[in-house]
Computed example of a mutant assay.
Amino acid sequence: MHHLRYSGLPFEEQRAAFLEIVAADPLLAKTLARMRELALPDWLVVSGALYNSIWNHLTGRPSGYGIKDVDLFYFDGTDLSYEAEDAVIRRAAQHFEGLTLPVEVRNQARVHLWYPAKFGQACPRYTSASESVGYFASKTHAVGVRYDAEGCLDLVAPFGLDDIFSFRITPNRVLDNQRTHEAKGRRARENWPEISVVPW
């Protein structure tokens, strides 16, 4: 059970291990450096590319295994138009050209505008990129990193890191996201059979 060696440790120890693994991952290190150069307001790399990289490291799988893309959130409430976000997405596509994985860019200030049509329910109007992470369907997925002003990696983890280090996907019932939680759990188990999925 060597892959569970950080499970149950105090948060500060898990945080140090998490950031060390992320910083040492060649794929993430390169992507994060590019994101810093792009300098979007209140930016945050979130979710899959992060916790998947941790699971790959702890199970001896190669960097990038099972990762489809990298999710980049930013928060800009000055212009909530589709056109403004689209312009950022196009600028980012050029900026990230040549990276191994595609980068999905989304303005978290706009989520409340399209979320009801896509998911059939309302979601709050977020006030920051970090706040939106707390509304993911699974607590395990609620994690983000970015560089702070001093150039150190900063972590956003509203539910801590123990679910990630315990290979456990735990539901976040703040919104009715049962379908998403179950679908992501199934998909994760196909790549990392070490994972357990807590029922909704």
Rank of each mutant, 00 (worst) to 15 (best):
H2C: 07
H3D: 05
L4Y: 14
L4G: 13
R5N: 14
Y6W: 15
Y6E: 11
S7F: 06
G8W: 00
F11C: 00
F11T: 01
R15T: 06
R15K: 15
A16E: 14
A17L: 10
L19A: 05
E20K: 14
V22H: 01
V22D: 00
D25G: 08
D25T: 11
P26V: 13
L27W: 07
L28K: 03
T31N: 10
A33W: 01
A33Q: 14
M35I: 13
R36M: 10
L38N: 03
L38I: 08
A39H: 13
D42H: 13
W43I: 03
W43Y: 15
V45W: 02
V46I: 14
S47E: 11
G48L: 06
G48Y: 01
A49E: 00
L50I: 06
W55V: 03
W55D: 00
W55T: 04
N56F: 00
L58N: 06
L58A: 03
G60T: 06
S63L: 03
Y65P: 06
Y65C: 03
G66N: 10
I67S: 02
L72I: 10
F73I: 10
Y74T: 09
D76P: 07
D76M: 09
G77M: 04
T78M: 09
T78D: 12
Y82D: 13
Y82T: 12
E83K: 14
A84H: 15
A84R: 12
D86E: 14
A87V: 12
I89K: 15
A92R: 00
Q94M: 13
F96K: 03
E97W: 13
L99V: 09
T100Y: 07
V103F: 12
E104S: 15
E104F: 07
V105K: 02
N107L: 09
A109G: 13
A109E: 04
R110Y: 04
V111Y: 11
H112I: 04
H112T: 03
L113S: 10
P116Q: 12
P116W: 15
P116T: 13
A117E: 14
A117M: 12
A117Q: 15
Q121I: 08
C123K: 11
P124D: 09
P124A: 12
A129Q: 12
A129F: 10
S130A: 15
E131T: 03
E131G: 08
S132I: 03
V133L: 06
V133C: 07
A137R: 02
T140N: 00
T140K: 00
T140E: 01
H141R: 08
A142K: 00
R146K: 04
R146W: 03
A149I: 08
E150K: 10
E150H: 10
C152P: 00
L155F: 05
V156F: 06
F159N: 02
F159Q: 00
G160C: 02
L161D: 00
D163C: 12
F165N: 02
F165V: 01
S166C: 07
S166K: 06
S166I: 05
F167Q: 03
R168C: 04
T170F: 08
P171N: 11
P171E: 08
N172E: 05
N172W: 02
N172M: 05
Q178N: 06
Q178Y: 13
E182N: 08
E182P: 01
E182A: 10
K184T: 12
R186G: 12
A188R: 05
E190G: 05
N191Y: 15
N191F: 15
W192L: 04
W192M: 03
P193F: 03
E194C: 11
S196G: 11
V198S: 02
V198H: 05
W200N: 11
